[in-house]
Computed example of a mutant assay.
Amino acid sequence: MLKPSESTKQSRQVARLLQRQRVVHLLRTSGPLARADLADRLGLPRPSVTALVADLIEDGTLVELESRVEGVSSRGRPRILLGCNPEARRVLGIRIDGIRARVILADATANISAEGETPTGDREPVAVIRSITRLAKKLMSDSTGKPASVVGVCIPGLVDDTTGLVIASHEVGWTNVELGKLLSRDLGIPVAVQDTTKAITLAETIAGQAREARSAVVLDHGGRLGVGLIIDGRPYAGSTGVAGAIGHVPVYGSTASCRCGRTGCMEADMSMYAMQAAAPQTIGKTYDEVDIDALRRENAGNEQSQNIVRDVIDRVAHTAAMIEALLDPELVIVGGLITDFDELADALVARIDELRSPERQGRTTTVRSTIGRDAPIAVIVALQQLDPDIAGMLHTTA
């Protein structure tokens, strides 16, 4: 256990790390900006922003740009704007699911310069990793500029992110795969591996709905069901690093078959795979291969299909209501693949709000994620490694 003084010191360090990342993200998305603008938009004291910016300039993440204030003569004092330095470093982001692995080459401002994908399917882990390595090397060799200096990987499942070991990913079909070690050996650069839900939670903390929240629950609802926790303004990993991995917790009375080989798992009852009985023609297809508008038209008048979807939404909402009651967060954030389906996401948000007891009204707000499915979450995981102390934020302190 940490001593109180050590815990306080680490909490301050983590707060500073988050502030650094928020400064960089704001400049990536809304820059260039002056120091005073950063302070105002982030709600931070100006001396704090000045100190953060000095560190970020020193390590090459930010650069100063000169711009004159509008309406002031050329003899007026120029205002120094700040921008991200795209040449500081480049990173690789890799997102793996049960159908494909998507590899992205991006600069330090998260702008994508090249990308490609390779199938996963029923392939052995070694074969997939070999294909990922070849693709990553090709992207780097075909692109001008510096080689990537770090890699961030997202994969759904139980992951030891201190070692990069994929303990179990039922969606991909992997067990005890040393993904981080193998990729780092083959690519020759550091690799961070995170469960997809934890990666989404990190992104929400830095750049999403939870960036100003002290506590939040992230509901990752898609081909799986995962929960991300944000406590005291930082992602919470738990005592062994797998807090929120509820997908394979058994549901009393359920007999639904799960991909893990057991029956009655939450994921079998509540993921979007559980909705596929309402649209069997989508089984085995990626999101991009499904004609969503045609699917919506086909199911619009099908009461049986509507009931299947409604039951899944209801079960997820009841689970969210229970988690909310236990943790009393400021926000419940609905994220994952479901946010690509407006009707489903809106229905889930509405049902969670409807289930909130009168005593809890006004205490927690339900919102939809703004991160989006196509956002390069794995790139965000990679970018965090550019901060030498970021492990203090990602890993458990127990």
Results as ranks from 00 to 15, higher is better:
388 P>H: 11
286 T>I: 05
195 D>R: 09
205 T>M: 13
303 E>L: 11
109 T>V: 10
7 S>W: 12
191 V>E: 01
71 G>I: 02
329 P>C: 05
213 A>G: 02
129 I>C: 03
213 A>K: 09
190 P>A: 06
46 R>P: 06
225 L>C: 09
270 M>L: 14
12 R>K: 12
107 D>W: 14
135 L>V: 14
87 E>M: 15
293 D>K: 12
381 V>L: 00
344 L>N: 10
27 L>Q: 03
323 I>W: 00
106 A>I: 06
18 L>H: 15
140 M>F: 05
107 D>G: 14
129 I>N: 00
340 D>I: 13
160 D>M: 06
282 T>P: 04
102 R>Q: 13
107 D>H: 12
234 R>H: 07
248 H>T: 00
184 S>K: 11
286 T>F: 13
391 A>Y: 00
220 D>N: 13
383 L>R: 10
174 W>M: 04
156 P>L: 08
173 G>I: 13
197 T>F: 01
8 T>G: 11
53 V>P: 07
311 D>N: 15
123 R>K: 13
368 R>A: 11
140 M>V: 11
266 M>F: 00
274 A>I: 09
299 N>E: 09
293 D>Q: 14
378 A>D: 04
350 A>S: 14
142 D>V: 12
47 P>H: 07
163 T>D: 04
197 T>N: 04
305 S>N: 07
146 K>M: 06
173 G>V: 13
352 I>N: 03
285 K>V: 08
298 E>V: 07
110 A>K: 11
357 S>R: 15
264 G>Q: 08
201 T>C: 05
206 I>Y: 10
112 I>K: 09
109 T>A: 13
221 H>V: 12
386 L>N: 02
119 P>R: 03
116 G>S: 05
398 A>I: 05
208 G>S: 14
245 A>F: 03
139 L>V: 11
302 N>K: 06
207 A>Q: 13
28 R>G: 14
343 E>Q: 04
246 I>A: 04
41 R>P: 02
149 S>R: 11
163 T>R: 02
38 L>E: 02
302 N>C: 05
175 T>F: 08
398 A>G: 04
153 V>C: 07
82 L>I: 08
298 E>C: 04
326 L>D: 12
135 L>N: 12
235 P>L: 15
28 R>L: 08
100 R>I: 11
348 L>E: 01
313 I>F: 00
255 T>K: 13
174 W>D: 05
63 V>R: 13
229 L>K: 01
28 R>K: 09
85 N>C: 12
168 A>I: 01
331 L>D: 06
299 N>F: 12
390 I>T: 05
242 V>Y: 06
264 G>L: 01
148 A>D: 09
10 Q>R: 15
115 E>W: 14
330 E>T: 04
322 M>N: 07
56 L>S: 03
3 K>G: 10
305 S>F: 00
365 T>L: 07
176 N>I: 03
263 T>A: 14
349 V>G: 00
172 V>M: 07
354 E>D: 10
27 L>W: 03
270 M>D: 04
287 Y>W: 14
13 Q>K: 14
317 A>L: 00
370 T>C: 05
54 A>T: 15
370 T>S: 09
343 E>R: 03
130 R>H: 03
200 I>A: 06
